[in-house]
Design a binder for these strands. Sequence first.
DNA 1: GCCGTTTTCGGCCCGACTGTTTTCAGTCG
Length: 585
Amino acid sequence: MSFILYRNGAVSLRNAEIARIFYELAELHEFRGDDFFKIRAYRNAAKVLAGLNEPVEEIKKKVDLKKIPGIGKNIAKKIEEILLTGRLQKHEELLREVPQGVIEIMSLPGIGPKRASMLLEKLNISNPEELAEAALAKRVRGLPGMGVKLEMDIIRNVEMIKRRSGNVLLATARELAAELTEYLNIISSVTRVEVGGSIRRWRETVGDIDLVVEAEDASMVFDAVKSHPRIKEAAKIVENRARFHTWWGIDVELEIVPEEMFFLALHKSTGSKKHLSRLQEILGAKGVDFAHSVIERTDAVHDEGDIYAALGMSYIPPEIREDRGEIESAINDRLPQLVEQSDIIGDLHIHTTWSDGVATIEQVVKRAKEKGYKYLAITDHSQSLKIAKGLSLEKLKKQHREIRMMNEKFSENNEDFRILTGMEVDILPKGDLDCPDEILEETDIVVASVHSAFRQDRETMTGRIISAINNKNVDIIGHVTGRLLGRRDEYALNLERVLDAAAACGTILEINSSPDRLDLNDINARLAKDKGIKIAVNTDAHDLKRMDEMPYGVAVARRAWLEAGDIVNTMPLEKLLLYLDEKNK
DNA sequence: GCCGTTTTCGGCCCGACTGTTTTCAGTCG
């Protein structure tokens, strides 16, 4: 039997891991106050690497890495070193020089390299905990340029980091879970593997990876897992259960079960705890013991549907097992027909090389067609977002002309595909838009988003977004609450009023599929649906790979109980354009 | 660091906001 995938101890790093080394390299150089352009080059290379469609190792076999835009002689050499040795000497050198915790300090809002290095130098602070302590002891305010407000921010933001600790983004967990699943599947005694727990429910962040494995010999499976390169050590092994620490900082929990118990175990693993206990409670009230009544018929359980059927209710998809009314609905056979990935036939928020994306219009269109989409909106940034190479009005017009020409070609060739002209227009601090109305008017899809002045007070921010909603040329509000999971809380906002305004104007709200945004979240998206607001599930992709993140947005939609009819990019093009037309009157 | 050439070095990076000031440095997107 061969379950060792990786020979000679050489672990092939994934693009994301290589990218992470360059991101860190950039931060280390930044702390040292090194050349801005070098730092930017590293960051850019990291972004490019993370966005590649194919493992860089495979690409290297075919072409010179220097051919990839953003990768030059030096970075190519560094990549080769990483591929060969799994490490980068320069990176490790700097890590020895700069305390690890200092990098974490720099990730706190309001603290950059200058302040981090002053804190280290003057107060000998080298990690977030020490910094929070110093802030509590009112020692930070003694330093030049730092005051009471910053101390309060520090205390709050270190708290935010702590809350995050132990949790990773769903996308990270899914990636590792998929790799382990694939690995387990080649072990001969394993007949079935499923990912359970909060990953299966598509929660936005998860604490650990739960795997349910159907196999005869638990110890054999555990031995194999121990030798997987992502596994650091076994934390606990008791009978048919084991917990492992991984190098990625997230734990893996394995449960080995015989065939007849597989779906019961998967169901239990999937949870949520609230869902399971509510199930117990409701059935208990009817005098049915949930566990007992099902287990008596294990031979009749061939999937989870059988479990719910045995309990006298319709099947409840994992995403909505949160005790938010799904059990009552299932008993009355009134569950929604949740939207599916296959219902999505377009993406209405995409960036290209025209602004800060790394793929051309041609490339994203090709990818969209491969995905079976019927349309795509190109929505590059507007002029004032300089850092993201926002388009001047001239360039925007030029882009729209080019898109129209491409569309003409599609119709000449009888191709059933359409590129929608679009833009992601900034909602400026005072609530006006970063583009004149006459241009917005002739643009197919206008996504309006906040990218600046995040710390306005609640009243101002609410008014700001509502005034964008009130502009009839705005079709979609992008990433409505502005949060970045684990990095930036949502801005102060009276969401209730924003939803009411969107409902009144017919303005579409976005579910942004980017795994670090997922914004609107499940709860807010469900509120929006209840008010009759239409939703667009968009990727906001800046490269080809991130166009694949649509399932994360769809999962949020499902967790929000949304059906295909609630989502505009399930509509055929004509219907979508009609909807926008009606709305804009 | 990369890139692009009028080929080997110069250009690439910008404006607003914030908290601290009292004229601005640092941070951010």
